[in-house]
Every structure is written in structure tokens, then in C-alpha cells.
Design a protein around this nucleic acid. Structure first.
Lengths: 126, 126
DNA sequence: CTCCTAGGTACATTAAAATATACTTCTTAC
DNA sequence: GTAAGAAGTATATTTTAATGTACCTAGGAG
């Protein structure tokens, strides 16, 4: 019985446990972004790593990659419906994790800032 | 804003993403087990790995280690209240992961069986 | 005395994930 | 014709995680 449980849990973890996976998914919730935009949102990610993790997320059916035949190239990424389903789980992880951060009261370290906080400026400057 | 979100999510993932962490936690839900019992539930885990992951889970406040001064030694592990809270999240991961397994219809591979299915026999043989 | 047990430690090795550096392609802008 | 930009590929290197093998301890059983 637990055999089946752990199998499903591991399936989830295998998808979401890459160093940048959660951040990529979070950045894509509710919008379509180009490769360069995702990269700009995640200023510290390595170029190769981003490519690899996007490929894995695509392979796992969480996002869709659309490539336009232009030069310079344009490639856009969106969450699939299935990927959007993950948002709820991410929210759940968030609330559990907040409790942990409170318990530990760890100060925020500089290199922990993984997502660029540019959302607001972006929206108002349009 | 997403900076805070991702930080909390990463806190959760950092705790739960070890190869055997979810299995260990799942096996401990609702009961206290000795080191050797945990190991028996996870027949394929490496000895060192189990020790290391238990230490990390203890450090992160998810479980409590009680050592009795006997020989041969006896050491018991239980989830803390905080660790028990995680059960709900694991359940959530499970239901999301089941959907994924259905989509992919991956056959169960032999070496994917990570938890020993000994629960029932155990209970009835007591 | 030697062996066995449980829960370790110490150290070496392998495998997997992430990072760094350089190169490619096509087209428009200078 | 040279440079710049987007989204890559290719390859090497570093970092981290997981494994494998051997050894330690105390007391009870033979």
C-alpha cells in the first residue's frame, strides 16, 4: 500500500526537485514568457542549466515550447493545464515552508534571492 | 513578492528532496521505529545514506532521535509534531503524482519498489 | 575467548547535477 | 563587413549526493 504511495510522491519529487524547477514554474504561472525573459527573471541561473531544466519540464508535460521561425530566434514557454495544476501544490509547499523559516528564523542570505523582483515595475511600466 | 514565495518553497524542497527522505517520513507516520526497523522497511537504502538522511531530518526538526543506553544499542525515531504536519503535504504530492503516472502510464519497474510492503503481516503477527 | 548484535564512524569511490567557457546560426543595424 | 542579439549546442570542470567497504563498541550467548 505504501509502495504505491511512495511511487506517486517520488514521481512528483522527481519532477519538481531540480534546483531551479520550482522557480521556473512559479515565474511561468499565468503567463507566457520567452526564453530570455525567463532567464532575466532568474538572474543567477546558469544558461545550460536553464535549457536543461526547461527541456525536462517539457518532457514531463508541465510546459509547452513554441518556437517561431525568425531570426534572431524566438521561443516561448507556457505552462500546460497539467502544469498549472501544480500551482496549488506549490502554494501548499509555500505555507509549510514558511512555518519552517519561522521556526528557524534564518536571516535571508544574499545568494538566496533567486527570482528577480521585477514584476511590479514591469506591470506599471507598460 | 515571488522572492518570498520561492524562498518558502525552497525551504520545503530542501528538506524533502533527498532521495529517501519522503520514504523515511512516510514509514514513520504514526509510529516510532528503531533504526533497524526503518532500514528493514527500506530494503534498498544504503546504510550510510540512511544515517545521513536521518541526521538531516533530525537537524531540520522533523524527527526526534531517542537513544537508550543499552548494549547492543537501541535508538528510536519518531516524527515531531512539525514532521507530522508534513503528512498532508505528502498526500498532496501523492495525488498530483498519481495523475502524472496515469498520464505517462509508466509500468512499475522492479527497482522502483523502495518501501518494503511488510505492514500488514507485521500488524497481524503481533 | 570468540562471535553476534545494533547503531554507529571513517574513508574512498561513483554517479548525477550544476556550472563555466566557447562556438553556431541567421538577420537586421551601423 | 563588422557587430549585436536570441536561443541554442558541445565539451570540460566542479560540486553535491549517494554508495560501498571496512572498522568500532559493549555486553550476552555459546
Amino acid at each position: 500500500m505504501k509502495v504505491k504511495q511512495i511511487r506517486a510522491i517520488k514521481a512528483t519529487l522527481d519532477i519538481v526537485c531540480g534546483k531551479w524547477k520550482a522557480a521556473i514554474l512559479l515565474v511561468l504561472v499565468g503567463k507566457t514568457l520567452r526564453f530570455s525573459e525567463i532567464k532575466a527573471s532568474l538572474p543567477k541561473i546558469n544558461h545550460q542549466t536553464l535549457i536543461k531544466q526547461l527541456k525536462e519540464l517539457e518532457r514531463d508535460g508541465l510546459l509547452e515550447r513554441t518556437s517561431y521561425d525568425e531570426a534572431p530566434p524566438r521561443v516561448e514557454y507556457t505552462l500546460t493545464e497539467y502544469g498549472e495544476d501544480l500551482e496549488e501544490l506549490l502554494t501548499h509547499m509555500m505555507s509549510w515552508g514558511e512555518k519552517h523559516l519561522e521556526l528557524k528564523k534564518q536571516p535571508l542570505e544574499e545568494d538566496e534571492v533567486i527570482i528577480d523582483n521585477f514584476e511590479e515595475e514591469r506591470v506599471t511600466s507598460q
